[in-house]
Every structure is written in structure tokens, then in C-alpha cells.
Design a protein around this nucleic acid. Structure first.
Lengths: 327, 327
DNA sequence: CTCACACGGTGGAGCGCTCCAACACCTCCA
DNA sequence: TGGAGGTGTTGGAGCGCTCCACCGTGTGAG
């Protein structure tokens, strides 16, 4: 049997297709009787409205696209939760696009634009131009992927890195290495860490920024640092994944953590929270960033054309088991 | 300026809208000259075809929906890669739906059906009925769901659990506990482990199955087991997350791993592969499951109506640093 | 008693595409 | 020299909805 349309439902309920449409969209100006008849028909026919038809007709998709770089990078999970918390009740669906999972030929941004989402959240260094006629409002979440005229919400990486380094300094460390990442956020964290270290009169240890900021890269970077600088007693990694790599390297060296080596991460990811890892880290407020991003985007989608807003949330130090005073 | 339509492109290129459509869909029966003119106009106008309009007209979305339970559960990542590897070149987009991120009121399955995806991959315990007129072909990936008449692809959990337990037995362990999970796959693994243990004449240690199979639950279960049975020398956890919880518990007890306690996981997740965790585990062939699922689904979408296929892939033991002979 | 106005409901136009039948035009061979 | 067949292109119908203008009642005020 063919898939039922709104006309089939109308016929089955003995009303017009327009009335069915009103019921489906929850209009208040429908009699209780008609509503029941339509709902009953919908159920009986197993009818599901066609999203394509409705968004074509309404010129609206009720969907928000979220652009992330890789599902494997779990920092986006709390972001998603925060976004959903705000956007869900506002009537929007969330459509996550993982750039790593899009055909390399196909531009992910192009895809979002083609699907006519009502708004876009960018949570990565964006490649193509998000411009063009009829492009929806955009809010940048997290990294400083700078899009002209777009709102942005992020934790203050500069302050976060300062918290991390000051924690280490307060514990009494004076040989401290930073494991930098080559992203926008990574650069801010590295610059801030360098500034705080320099202000404390602590000699700089140069480490090549890791392009992908993964566990493997953190491992190699830490191996290198620990090999070249046996006097290092503390490492501040650009994110939790790299910190876990550093923990692996410490293990390789037979270094006790936190006895011989202290390690601080950044993100307060689910991994950092496990009993095994129990990582001292900086909470980048992902969920709060998501909520604020959702609020800003919702207001833009409602038509606000105020000047671009750039909001910054205060990160927090989370002390766990990987930091202690040096011997 | 208004968003350009196919008519604007046609006018700008001096051809008909039909020709533009042919060019957009890469038809071979278009002259080089026309193609160039259309592509030039597309570029100049910054035109992007409307997905809604095209799928409405074509009665086809070129999209496949993937239903997972939670982004935070990273076992699906390799699955996605495998699926994408096969489905991408076949011309399908992948649309991941995380049930945890859908408004509780809204049925995620309903959403997929409304969006008229051409195929569905189910990688979770499915709630609603995926039936109804015009429902697309469905393939179940993993052992979590059983949908009548749907194809399925999964690793052989029974064989995998056997591999894990036999590895422990071969090392000489005879006090072995299993940390079960309450999912479909979890039950299979638990039953198999119990059977192998029983055949080896090893007394059973009863542990309550964990409902969500997370790190936290693995931690608590292991804490309980280790407390109640001080003679246990090996733990086989239902998945890597729980194994990492168990590792955390071992640390709490001051047990050296693998000296005092051996731990085996299941999934060979990215976490297990880190230098810090370095977990002995069972590779559940997620990427291969994804590829095979993609192949089956593609053939169904091409119209195959052969009898339901149930494919099983052989898991593999990956020995790393968390297992050793008992003292 | 009449008029205005809610209230609940309706048909038609149109959203931006795809697909199909049809159509010029050209080439080639009988 | 005429028709068959191929190549490139075209307009029209229609996909399943939403939105808008409009319409018929019933009700209360003047």
C-alpha cells in the first residue's frame, strides 16, 4: 500500500487537508471533535508527515546544524547536551554533522546550507565560506574559529590556562612544560601559559604544537619532553586527550603520578572523570557554552539583528589526583 | 537578495531549468558547453539546490539514518567509519540520530521516518515499531535489537567471550569474575563466559548485570566483587568502559595490574588502545560490521527482497598490558 | 431585528525541484 | 534522398505540504 498523504488522512477523518495540517501543527483554533477525528485517522493510517514537503512549503526546517570535526573527539558531547537543552523546548531539532564522516569531495557546509537549516552552530575551525544569499544565522561555539559578524560563545582559554599554571606554581613546581595544540584554542592556551610562566621567571621549554591534539600526539610530545628535560616535574597539556597521552608516557618512564610528575589537562571530559584517570583539569564549561550558544542562536533565528555578541565563560580548575607538590 | 532557485540559474546560464537539473545531477548527456555555462552561473549566483524540493520531487533522500543510543558511548565511531566507507561512494549521506539528544516527547524513529531516509541502520535497543507503510529497509548492526525480517550484522559475542575467558584460563587463572551488562550483547557475553567457566570447573561468581554498562557501573561492580571475593585474580568486563571502571577499582584496592589482577575488556575502543590504559580486550570488528551493514543496506535499497540475512563476524583477542599469569 | 465579530473550517496557489514525453537538429546509410 | 537513430534540450505535470484569503454559522450588542 502506498504511503498515506495528508489528503488520505483528511478523507479518513472527513475533514479538509487544511484542518489536518492545523491539527498536526497543534493549532489552538481547532474543535476538540475535529482534533480527535484527525488524530484517530493519523493513527489508523500510520501516517507520518513528510518533512521535505513541509519545509519546502513553510520555508523553514525547524532544524539547527552543528558542525563538529570528529565524533571521536568527545568534547562536543556536553556542548550538544547544552544546545539541546535550550533548542529542544524552542522547537528545534539538532542535526550533528561530523566533518570527518562526510565524503571528502563534499563540503559539509555546503550540505548544511542545502538542507536549509534555520541556524548553524560552528564548533570547529571552519573551512569554506558560510556566506551567500539566504545563509542562516551562525553562532561559533568554543574555539575561536572567527567568522565575521557571527556571534560567539567560548570559555576563556587564556584564563583557563592561567588557572592551570598557577595551580602548578602554587604547588611549588618550577620546571613546568606545556604540551601545546595547533588549534585556535590551543594557541590561546599556549600563549597564556607562556605568559604566566615567564612572569614567574620560569624558563620556557619549547614543544612543537600537535596538529590534531590526540592522545597519541600527547604521548609522543611528553616522551620527548621527559627525555630531553629530566628535571621537569609538571606538565600542562592543551587538552585531556593529550594529558592522557602524557600519563601514558609517564608510565613508560616509570614515573609515579603525581609523586614524580604532575599532569594537568583541559576540558574536564568524561575520560578525566573516570576513577582510573582521575585527572586534574580545567572545566571549559561545555554545557554552559552550549546553552548560551543555543540562546543566542534562538534569538537570531527569531530575527534579531543586533550587533555581533561575543560571550566568554569563566573556566574552573578541577583538582583531582594527578597533581601534587614536587618532591 | 532572495535565495536563487534553479530558474535563476537557468536564466543566468541561458538554458532551461531542466538542463540545470541534469547538470546538477551529473548527467552524461549534457554538452560540455552547457555544463560549463551552468556551473559558472551556479558559482556566480552562489546557488545551492534545496534538498527539501529535490527529495520531494524525486521521492528519494539519498540519506541513511543511523540510530544510536548515546554519543557518549564511543563504540559507534568505528561503526560510522565503516558505514561511511561503503555508503559514501554509493551516494548516500549518513544522518546520525542520538536517542539521548532527542526530545523525550519526540520519537526518534518517528523523526527518521518523517525525514524519509532511504534506509535505516539500528545500533541500539529500538523502542518503537519501525514498521508502517513505506518504511525503508532496515539493517540491525550489533546484537542489541531484534527486528523481525530485518537483516543483521554483528560480531559473535559468544565466541568473543569465549576468547576472553580462555585467554585468562590459559594464563592459569582459576578465580575469574565476569562483570555483566544488561544489554542484548551483554547477555550473550555473560552466558558464554558462564558456560566456558563452568566447563573448566570454575565456581561461578554472581554479579548483578549493569543496566547502562558505563565506567561508573564497572567501577562499582568491581569494587563489590573485589571486596566480597579477595581471591579473585582476573576480571572479564562486558565492555571496555566497564573494564576501565574495574581498573579504577583495582587502583583503589592498591592491586597491581596485571601483577595482582588481570582485566579483559570488550570492544577494542580507542580508550583501550591508549598507552595509559593499554587494555587487553576483544576486538568486536566494528568497522567491518559497519562495512558489511552498509553493503547489505545498499543492496536492499537497490530493491533486493531476498530472505533476511544474519551475518556474524569473528571477533579477535587483542592481548595488551592488563593480563598476565596470576602469582 | 440587524449588524458585527468570533470561531471553526475550507479551497487554491505555490514552495523548488525531478521526471517524462516530446522535440529540434545532425549524421549516417540504404 | 529519405528515413532511422542518436544527441542535446525543453516545457509541463506533480511531489506533499503550508499559508492565505475567504466563508458560513452562532452569538451578543445596539
Amino acid at each position: 500500500m502506498a504511503r498515506p498523504t495528508i489528503y488520505d488522512v483528511a478523507a479518513a477523518a472527513g475533514v479538509s487537508k487544511s484542518l489536518v495540517s492545523l491539527v498536526l501543527r497543534g493549532s489552538p483554533r481547532v474543535s476538540e471533535e475535529s482534533r480527535r477525528a484527525v488524530e484517530e485517522a493519523v493513527r489508523r493510517l500510520d501516517y507520518r508527515p513528510s518533512r521535505a514537503a513541509s519545509s519546502l512549503a513553510a520555508d523553514r526546517t525547524d532544524a539547527v546544524g552543528l558542525l563538529i570535526d570528529d565524533y571521536a573527539n568527545p568534547w562536543f558531547i556536553d556542548l550538544v547536551r547544552g544546545l539541546h537543552e535550550v533548542l529542544g523546548p524552542a522547537g528545534y531539532r539538532l542535526s550533528v554533522v561530523d566533518v570527518a564522516t562526510v565524503s571528502p569531495a563534499e563540503d559539509p557546509v555546503e550540505g548544511l546550507l542545502s538542507s536549509r537549516v534555520d541556524g548553524i552552530v560552528v564548533a570547529m575551525d571552519v573551512p569554506g565560506a558560510l556566506r551567500g544569499p539566504g545563509a542562516p544565522p551562525i553562532v561559533v561555539a568554543g574555539t575561536r574559529a572567527h567568522i565575521p559578524d557571527a556571534d560567539s560563545v567560548a570559555n576563556d582559554d587564556w584564563a583557563g590556562a592561567r588557572l592551570a599554571v598557577e595551580h602548578l606554581l602554587a604547588l611549588g613546581h618550577f620546571r613546568i612544560a606545556h604540551l601545546p595544540a595547533a588549534s585556535g584554542a590551543g594557541t590561546a592556551r599556549a600563549d597564556s601559559a607562556a605568559a604566566v610562566l615567564a612572569a614567574a621567571g620560569i624558563p620556557r621549554i619549547a614543544v612543537t604544537p600537535s596538529p590534531t591534539a590526540t592522545e597519541a600526539e600527547g604521548y609522543w610530545a611528553a616522551l620527548h619532553v621527559l627525555g630531553a628535560h629530566p628535571d621537569v616535574t609538571a606538565i600542562f597539556a592543551s587538552n585531556d586527550a593529550m594529558a592522557i597521552g602524557a600519563l601514558g608516557a609517564a608510565r613508560e618512564f616509570g614515573y609515579d603520578v603525581p609523586g614524580r610528575l604532575s599532569v594537568v589537562g583541559y576540558d574536564n571530559s568524561a575520560l578525566a572523570r573516570t576513577h582510573l584517570v582521575d585527572l586534574t583539569t580545567i572545566d571549559d564549561r561545555s554545557a554552559a557554552v552550549g546553552r548560551e550558544t543555543g540562546r543566542l542562536l534562538a534569538s537570531r533565528m527569531r530575527g534579531s539583528d543586533a550587533a555581533p555578541v561575543h560571550r566568554t565563560l569563566e573556566p574552573a580548575l578541577i583538582v583531582r589526583g594527578t597533581t601534587a607538590p614536587p618532591k
